[in-house]
Amino acid sequence: MRLLLVEDERALGAALGDALREAGWVVDHAEDGRDGLRRGLAGQYDVVVLDIMLPGMNGYDVLKHLRAQEVWTPVLMLTAKDGEYDQTDAFDLGADDYVTKPFSTPVLLARLQALARRAAPERPVAMTAGGLVLDPTTRRVTREGREIQLTAREFALLHHLMRKNGQVQSKAEILENVWDSDYPGADNVVEVYIGYLRRKIDTPFESRIIETVRGMGYRLNPVPESRGS
């Protein structure tokens, strides 16, 4: 799942971003209100975490502009306990949740997961492809009834491929959706993680579900190929 974090305190933003990535989120980080608004209008996010006191444009103005442009992405507001705005102001302007600093990171992560689930009722609780089942709520993956243990990044990669089931995804598209938009490394990290996934969801079984489309990228094949074909 993809999240926009708009937070100007660098230490807090870095720590929170690391915790979110460890939990499997793809995080874009903006450090001022205008950049946060630009990203919020241009990107497709599951949740926005929005600080109130920001340079350039405060969080409430960012929120007002997002809602005025009919961007209904769930927004969780962050503010200091002694801030001039209160919880009522946040909800009146269209926020979906509100957390006061300092906060418990595990509690914040749980509330973000709840917001993402409520925001996408049209998505099935579990996604399936060729005997492979991924439940984004419980983060449980099975194939033919056998549970498969994945790391947070492997889960994020598989989740993206299953959301695009049957569609070819280039390395650039995978990097943008599974790694951060400003990921500084080489795109061969995608090949490495595709290899990790294959060893877990293909190798133990009689058919291949992850397909390489030469010169284009990767996709999940809804009708897995037999190893003998």
Rank of each mutant, 00 (worst) to 15 (best):
E9T: 02
A30T: 03
E84C: 02
G56W: 09
L41P: 08
A110R: 04
P184E: 04
H159I: 08
K200C: 08
F103R: 07
P102C: 00
V75P: 12
A156Y: 06
I210T: 01
F155G: 08
Q87N: 04
G40S: 08
E211N: 07
D32E: 14
W72T: 09
D35T: 05
R198A: 05
A30L: 04
K200Q: 03
A68Q: 15
G83F: 06
K164T: 10
L37V: 10
G36A: 02
N221T: 02
L3W: 07
G130N: 06
L37C: 01
L197R: 12
H65K: 15
L4T: 12
R38E: 11
A119G: 15
A116D: 14
K164D: 13
L93P: 07
Q69K: 12
D135R: 06
G215L: 05
Q44N: 13
G185Q: 07
F205I: 01
V192F: 14
G131S: 10
A186H: 07
D61T: 07
T203G: 03
L132V: 09
L112A: 05
G215A: 10
G94V: 04
E9I: 02
A23D: 13
I201W: 02
P121K: 12
Q149D: 04
F205H: 03
P106E: 01
D18R: 15
L78A: 11
A129H: 13
L37D: 01
M216N: 06
V168L: 01
G56H: 12
A90R: 09
A15W: 06
V48S: 09
L161Y: 14
V141G: 00
E173K: 08
D61S: 13
G59E: 13
V190C: 11
N165C: 15
T105W: 00
W72R: 05
T212L: 01
N221A: 08
L134K: 01
Q69S: 14
D97K: 10
